[in-house]
Amino acid sequence: KVRTSSKAIARLQEIVAERAGTSEVDIAVHHLAAPDRAAAFADRLRERVPGLMDLHVSEVGAVIGAHTGPGLLGAVVSPR
């Protein structure tokens, strides 16, 4: 079980890399009030995902933010 935020982010990075594999993919990193953490996460994904074609970092909207709260960090992997 993952219980700390640093371990959760490391696990999220592993999941994204597994889902991306070696195929060409686009990745979106989403955050809420955590632009520095999202940028650092995006940088690690650039190093770890060999088939990364395009990477977007954006803040989530109010609807998702109302359910999650500040500090949210997530990723979407989209095959090309």
Results as ranks from 00 to 15, higher is better:
V2A: 09
R3W: 09
R3G: 13
S5K: 15
S5G: 12
S6Q: 15
S6A: 15
A8Q: 13
I9C: 08
R11N: 11
R11C: 05
R11H: 14
L12M: 15
Q13R: 15
Q13M: 14
E14I: 08
E14D: 12
I15T: 12
I15D: 13
V16R: 11
A17I: 04
A17D: 05
E18T: 12
E18P: 02
R19N: 06
A20R: 05
A20V: 02
A20K: 07
G21D: 01
G21Q: 04
G21K: 01
G21I: 00
S23G: 04
S23E: 08
V25C: 02
V25Q: 06
D26R: 11
D26P: 05
A28H: 09
A28Y: 05
V29N: 03
V29L: 01
L32D: 05
A33E: 07
A33Q: 11
A34Y: 02
A34I: 01
A34L: 01
P35G: 10
P35T: 06
P35H: 04
P35Y: 01
D36F: 01
D36V: 01
D36Q: 08
R37F: 00
A38Q: 08
A40I: 04
F41M: 14
D43K: 12
R44K: 14
L45H: 13
R46K: 15
R46S: 10
R46A: 09
E47D: 13
E47V: 07
R48I: 04
R48N: 07
R48F: 02
P50M: 00
G51R: 03
L52A: 05
L52I: 03
M53K: 15
M53L: 10
M53T: 14
D54R: 13
L55P: 07
L55N: 08
H56Y: 05
H56N: 09
H56P: 03
V57C: 13
V57F: 09
V57R: 13
S58N: 12
S58M: 07
S58F: 10
E59S: 09
E59K: 06
E59I: 01
V60D: 02
V60N: 03
V60W: 02
G61I: 00
G61C: 00
G61L: 01
A62M: 06
A62F: 06
A62T: 07
V63M: 11
V63A: 13
I64G: 06
G65R: 08
G65P: 12
H67A: 00
H67R: 03
H67M: 03
H67G: 03
T68I: 05
T68C: 07
G71Q: 11
L72S: 07
L72G: 07
L72W: 04
L73S: 09
G74M: 14
G74R: 13
G74P: 15
G74I: 11
V76I: 14
V76L: 15
V77M: 06
V77E: 09
V77A: 11
P79D: 07
R80F: 08
R80L: 10
R80I: 12
